[in-house]
């Protein structure tokens, strides 16, 4: 067990096994991708989580008049005021009024912290690249080009970096 600290309890063993990279049949390591499994208006999505900084629970999101509908507004997170994206609008999954409080995924992007409002955050996990499959036809959008199997079901994989670059008018 080189490189692994002492494992003395079932919890430590579980933690080790959960984080342990899986290997394919030839014994080669399969690259993993970190994703946040979330729900937006009841629908499951896997968000890329490489630049995810934290999950915050915000009491309120202040609307900013004159903004595009994809902007939920401003929220105070750890003493900093961050812009928050209305994720249901971003994903064209709006069902009713926009979320004005609740969990917000805070990403680091272009030296700024940006929030994405979601209905619920279920888990943040590492999944093997083999769990992804490409979408085709009208299922494909600039920010959703594949789906990923998490907890036994396939769900759209949202490229958050591409989405935020697009919102900020940056080249990807």
């Amino acid at each position: 067990m080189s490189g692994v600290g002492a494992i003395n309890t079932p919890d430590e063993l579980s933690a080790y096994l959960k984080d342990k990279p899986s290997e394919d049949a030839d014994g080669a390591e399969v690259p993993h991708v970190s994703v946040a499994v979330v729900r937006v208006n009841g629908r499951p999505y896997a968000f890329s989580a490489q630049s995810l900084l934290q999950v915050a629970k915000v009491k309120s999101i202040a609307k900013v008049p004159g903004c595009a509908s994809v902007i939920a507004g401003l929220a105070s997170v750890g003493g900093e005021i961050v812009g928050v994206v209305d994720t249901s609008e971003l994903l064209h999954a709006r069902d009713g009024a926009p979320l004005q409080s609740g969990p917000v995924l805070i990403y680091g992007h272009a030296e700024e912290r940006i929030g994405l409002s979601v209905s619920a955050v279920e888990e943040i996990i590492s999944v093997p690249e083999t769990a992804f499959r490409k979408l085709e036809g009208d299922q494909v959008s600039p920010i959703v080009t594949s789906e990923v199997e998490c907890a036994g079901q396939y769900m759209p994989f949202v490229d958050v970096g591409a989405a935020l670059s697009s919102l900020l008018g940056q080249e990807t």
Binding site: A68, I81, A110, L168
Partner: peptide, 18 residues
């Protein structure tokens, strides 16, 4: 935040405060 300033047509608002 630039997310707001770049996606807003409102030029009357310059800053936010807590």
């Amino acid at each position: 935040p630039s997310l707001i300033s770049k996606r807003s047509e409102n030029r009357g608002v310059r800053a936010a405060f807590a």
